[in-house]
């Protein structure tokens, strides 16, 4: 039974969740990523950027977890840790129950067929000298997925899926606008039919009609192949649309994690509340109370003491400056780290 304010670790509750909903494709356990800061003439480590600081959650197969938070809060770092592009400083990552934290080399490359990332920046992920057709065909050719003509028709199908015309395969990335380039990157990621996609701001650069197609497509792929997503986006409406649960990060830590309805209808953490109130809605004269936070996100190299949000929190109390709040479950399935509720 759930009790108000009982400190339950995310892990504990997620394990329970996992039991009730089948096996999880992804488990993130107390993961930390500290980047060293070099300084002085001897280039010695003088401190650490705590990009991800003790994050745990699990993702049941076929589910989507949304990840939101401000620039620099560690979303992409967490995404890269999950993809094993970077090694965590501490903690472990499990895929399908298997600890992959230390898998390397050829085995890792194999794993990557199942786990694909769609990046924030389509410029850096597309080789400018390759035609769009070759870019999308490349993973298929490297992994010997069919004959030349099979691959050609698959390329056309993938282009169609992402809303580009078949002629696009003869052109080069620079001939496309930003949104069009992002669609090419998505087509490439989909080529090997992965099981988990870490989508880092993947639809943010897309225009709405195409965004709707891609979101519908992601939903279809999810139903059809049981795909799971870690969906990173700054667009709260999009995150709400695609996610089952949503995790809110601030300075490397989870500040709230809840089923989406609870998170959007009754957010507990003041940061979540501010985020939601700042999201522009496509309506004239939407009468909402807007909480405009002052200041920037503090540097994760020097996170504020106590609650890291205390420098911007409209509800800050004395205790917030000295004591760090722990993530606890305050409503069924809804976790938050805030002294207001203790």
């Amino acid at each position: 039974m759930w009790e108000r304010g009982r400190p339950v670790s995310t892990l504990e509750s997620d394990l329970a969740l996992k039991k009730s909903q089948g096996k999880s494709i992804l488990e993130v356990r107390n993961v930390k990523k500290y980047f060293p800061i070099m300084g002085g003439i001897l280039r010695r480590t003088v401190g650490h950027v705590k990009a991800v600081d003790d994050v745990s959650f699990s993702l049941p197969e076929g589910e989507t977890i949304g990840l939101v938070g401000e620039s620099g809060c560690g979303k992409s770092t967490l995404g890269r840790l999950i993809m094993r592009i970077n090694d965590p400083t501490a903690g472990s990552i499990l895929m399908n129950g298997r600890d992959i934290t230390r898998v390397k080399g050829g085995q890792l490359r194999k794993l990557r067929h199942d786990f694909q990332m769609v990046f924030q920046d389509p410029y850096s992920s597309l080789n400018p000298r390759m035609s769009v057709g070759s870019l999308i065909a490349e993973p298929l050719i490297v992994n010997r997925r069919g004959s030349r003509s099979d691959i050609q028709s698959e390329v056309v199908r993938l282009l169609e899926i992402v809303g580009l015309s078949p002629e696009a395969r003869l052109r080069f990335p620079h001939e496309f606008s930003g949104g069009q380039r992002q669609r090419i990157a998505i087509a490439r990621a989909l080529a090997l039919r992965p099981k988990l996609i870490v989508a880092d701001e993947a639809v943010s650069a897309l225009d709405v009609s195409i965004q709707a197609q891609v979101l519908n497509l992601l939903a279809d792929l999810r139903k059809e192949f049981g795909l799971s997503y870690v969906f990173i986006s700054h667009n709260l409406a999009v995150v709400k649309h695609v996610s089952d649960r949503v995790a809110v990060m601030y300075l490397g830590r989870l500040v709230e994690l809840a089923p989406k309805r609870q998170l959007y209808n009754s957010p507990l953490h003041p940061y979540t509340q501010a985020l939601l109130s700042a999201a522009p809605e496509p309506k004239r004269h939407a009468n909402r109370e807007r909480i405009v936070l002052v200041g920037d996100v503090p540097s994760p190299a020097k996170p504020p003491s106590g609650c890291a949000f205390h420098t911007r929190c409209p509800k800050v109390m004395d205790v917030c400056r000295s004591e760090r709040p722990v993530l606890k479950e305050y409503a069924p399935g809804q976790f938050t780290a805030c002294h207001l509720y203790t």
């Binding site: 709405v208 009609s209 195409i210 965004q211 709707a212 197609q213 979101l215 519908n216 939903a219 709260l236 409406a237 999009v238 709400k240 649309h241 959007y264 939601l276 999201a279 809605e281 496509p282 309506k283």
Partner: peptide
């Protein structure tokens, strides 16, 4: 207008163009 997700509405499937 109909193809965008909106926070205070639940749209099962977006009306894409």
């Amino acid at each position: 207008m109909e193809s965008i997700p909106v926070i205070d509405q639940d749209r099962e499937r977006l009306a894409s163009i």
